[in-house]
Amino acid sequence: MHLLRTTSTSLLGATLIATAAAAQDQRLDRLDPSVRPLVASVIDSARAAGLPTEPLVQRALEGATKGAPGEVIVGAVQRLVADLGEARSALGPGTTPPELAAGAAALRAGAGPAVLAKLRRARSQTITVPLAVLADLVASGVPVDSAAAAVLALASTTRDADLVEFRRAVERDIALGAPPGMAVSTAASAAYGAQGLQLDAGARQSRPSRP
């Protein structure tokens, strides 16, 4: 009982400190006074849960600049909190804020948590860019499964810059009229090297080293 009370007290304390932190963020003054406390409270809860708050602040400020109604801004921030939470569950502890933000975007685009978890295992370096590329590909009309398979196959051996270039190639081909699914497999094969690429989620051949 005593232990429980201590824990509750410290959680409450953390929330109070967090509330103070959000309340003092002058950037949120750009929000309508009727909306500001609600947004601050959502952000505080996220902080208490150990989620990054900067993407939430940015989302709220975007809404303010775009002149969105208060309830739309609050709803958008709440949805982003949920996405960030789900991304963290899928990607595990130690995930960096940029990875969480990109992961949330990938989830919103339609990639499942399992894909995020596979990406985490597939690559030892940061997976911010693979996650962002995945989100962008799906946004370009590439079916989620094809996009996920291609990014998974490339993630372990491909540098960030080449992944971004891969995404550009896909978008270029789509703009030129290629069906999105075909565009992604063509570009992935080119990015992967001459030996070809099996676009299933398990395909992870070693890639020739770059000159």
């Binding site: 989302r59 775009k66 969105a68 990109a102 911010t128 962002a132």
Partner: peptide
């Protein structure tokens, strides 16, 4: 979320 178009830039490390 706000009904106006936005774009994305991804910066690699």
């Amino acid at each position: 979320e706000f009904g106006t178009p936005s774009s994305v830039v991804t910066v690699g490390g």
